[in-house]
Computed example of a mutant assay.
Amino acid sequence: MELWYTEKQTEHFGITAKIKQTHHTEQTDFQKLDMIETEEFGNMLVLDGMVMTTEKDEFVYHEMVAHVPLFTHPNPKNVLVVGGGDGGVIREILKHPSVEKATLVEIDGKVIEYSKKYLPTIAGALNDPRVDVQVDDGFMHIAKSVNEYDVIMVDSTEPVGPAVKLFEKGFYEGISKALKDDGIFVAQTDNPWFHSELITKVFKDVQEIFPITRLYTANIPTYPSGLWTFTIASKKHDPLEVEDSRFHDLETKYYTKELHKACFALPKFVSDLVK
């Protein structure tokens, strides 16, 4: 007998993975959480039926969320991650020696708990002394923060359930206030094959707030379509104008200084979404 997990990414399309075992399943206060072990991608975190991260391909997402803004900012010291309870973005942030404090605000403490247990290579850095882990509402945390952060990263699920308000213009306005005068913000903004309208809406909203707004992409096999977008916005620093001297060596598997600028070269059907 074989057991397979299928994520229905649209009404008519999905991806499927053969399962070795289910480690844990629970309806938390916010979402359905499943931690499963797959044959192809190792341990996999699933929230509300959507793949959040896997041991095999997690490095792509986490490196691209973290390193593009952190190399764009000349001296990032205080960094905030909204969501991201699996800890992968935090792990990548701490590779930058200038970072003095990394705050993680995750609404669902169960994500943190079970990521530490079943995804230790991803969540291991959450115990670092530079990290402040807060189980709290990221939307409200942003609303209470003023001129505090150098970089803010929104590592959310897709816009369903508790993450819906993290895709609203008011949230981006709050982020602008929470950032310092030369601050940078980045968010995952889904895929152009199935959610093109979301990319267009978010980019338009962010562009009305920040003077520099750009879209970049990465290849993530277990995310819908495999082609994933990120929207980065800055008050001052352009990610396409980073001087070579600013890059320093990092241990990465996907991100490189050459890719830093190359990832902004978009397929035409994607660039058309944000013209």
Rank of each mutant, 00 (worst) to 15 (best):
Y5F: 15
E11V: 03
H12R: 07
I15S: 14
K18T: 00
K20A: 01
K20P: 00
T22A: 04
T22R: 05
L33M: 14
I36E: 06
I36R: 08
T38K: 02
T38V: 03
V46E: 08
G49S: 10
M50E: 12
M52A: 05
E55V: 05
K56A: 14
K56P: 00
D57V: 05
D57F: 13
E58K: 10
F59L: 06
V60C: 15
V60M: 14
H62D: 07
E63D: 11
M64D: 02
V65C: 13
V65T: 08
V65L: 15
V68T: 13
L70W: 04
H73T: 11
H73L: 06
P74A: 11
K77D: 11
K77Q: 15
G83Q: 06
I90H: 08
L94D: 12
H96A: 13
P97N: 14
S98F: 08
V99K: 11
V105M: 04
I107K: 03
I107G: 03
E113T: 13
Y114T: 02
K116D: 07
P120N: 04
T121H: 09
A123I: 03
A125Y: 06
D128A: 03
P129D: 07
V131D: 04
D136G: 04
D137G: 06
H141F: 14
A143M: 13
A143E: 14
A143L: 10
V146T: 14
V146M: 09
N147D: 15
Y149A: 09
Y149T: 06
D150K: 10
I152C: 05
I152T: 07
I152N: 08
M153H: 00
V154I: 08
D155H: 02
S156D: 01
P159R: 05
V160E: 05
V160P: 00
V160Q: 05
K165N: 10
L166V: 04
F167V: 04
E168F: 10
E168V: 02
G170K: 11
S176P: 00
S176A: 14
A178E: 06
D182Q: 06
I184R: 01
V186S: 09
Q188R: 00
D190Y: 00
D190W: 00
N191F: 03
P192G: 12
P192Q: 10
H195M: 13
L198P: 04
T200F: 01
F203N: 04
F203R: 08
K204N: 14
V206I: 15
Q207W: 00
I209A: 09
P211K: 12
I212N: 03
T213C: 12
R214E: 10
A218K: 02
N219D: 12
N219P: 00
I220C: 04
I220N: 07
T222E: 07
P224F: 12
S225C: 10
T231A: 12
I232N: 02
A233P: 08
K235D: 00
K235V: 01
P239W: 05
L240E: 09
E243N: 10
R246K: 14
F247C: 12
T252W: 09
T252P: 09
T256G: 07
L259M: 13
H260N: 08
K261G: 15
K261H: 11
K261T: 14
A262F: 11
P267K: 07
P267V: 04
S271M: 01
V274I: 15
K275W: 01
K275R: 11
